[in-house]
Design a binder for these strands. Sequence first.
DNA 1: TCTGGGGTCCTCTGTCGA
DNA 2: TCTGTCGACAGAGGACCC
Length: 355
Amino acid sequence: MSAMTGRCVAHLDMDAFYVSVELRRRPQLRGRPVIVAGSGPRAVVTTASYEARRFGVGSAMPAARARRLCPDGMFLEPDFTYYREASRVVMGIVRAHLETVEVVGLDEVYLELTGLPAPHAAMRRIRAEIEAHTSLTCSIGIGPSKLVAKVASDAEKPQGFVFLSREQACERFAQAPCGLVPGIGPKTAERLRAHGLDTLGKLAAADQDALAARFGPRFAVELQRRARFEDDSPVSEHRKVVSESREVTFDSDIADLGELERILERLVDQLCGALERQQRRGRTIGIKVRLDDFSTHTRARTLLGEVSSAEQVWPIARELLRRFSPPRPVRLIGVRVARLDAVRTTCEDQLTLVV
DNA sequence: TCTGGGGTCCTCTGTCGA
DNA sequence: TCTGTCGACAGAGGACCC
């Protein structure tokens, strides 16, 4: 626990979650390289078992590439209904032990432990209970902030249990690439590398003014704070859902506007059906179009009042598409309703409602 | 061999009214 | 009355996350 502030946060991250859930109902696959990925020509890998990762297979990789890297791998179609149910059980166990939990996706959660008499023991109990009830394992990181806890939980996967102070995190990851830290993605890491900042230690020690000149004053401060593992963001149970969308990538590109309109109308129906079931309404209607050169274009219109029905959304979405008039074949089309009213608030609600 | 789906947040730019 | 500026919004693009 941090001596100065007394703050204590845990990050609990399920190990190869989707694959592990699949292995419960297909135990004969244990020990084999298992890859959860879509089956279409443009599918990507959702999760790979640790055995598959040894072949170089990783999340977000095109499934076609994964098949080449790991031809004997067992490829499974994602079954999100099944994963959501498993997640609900895990999160139920966590909530039974602790009050302040922030669910991030199906397989990870931040926990506020500040004030607990024995936070480490509490986390070991939670982990044991999850494993006993679900046969699923997780990794746990504990630190004085969400940032330290998150990086600590990743450090010794699977089944890790890592406790670090901020200072220990700085020391342990000083030689690590900047992209280790959440919020520094591939693009930013590459830009940093181009300026000689290839490790978190170098970024943490970089000259603030020089950094600001290259990345802008605000982003520079944020980058350096992350490199120094400085973070005081709260574990917040209530996250406002501000938009909802549906999109689809085609197996092959589509140039015909009439066909695009028919597909967009189906997406509008799906989205509006979900919104109406949730009794949610929004003021901004948007479309998204990805062309065959992978450039992404969005068009949006904000209305005076809130809407949710397909009868209201579809004419606007259609007009946005017609006005954009895709100049090249289209590989993805999507529709979005944003500036949603504030009915549903927590991530958990969102996860359970979308089923 | 290209690159999902569903989100959030940030930045830049243009517009408009005070 | 003219001009500049400031803030709020909206739209678009992009980075990032799971």
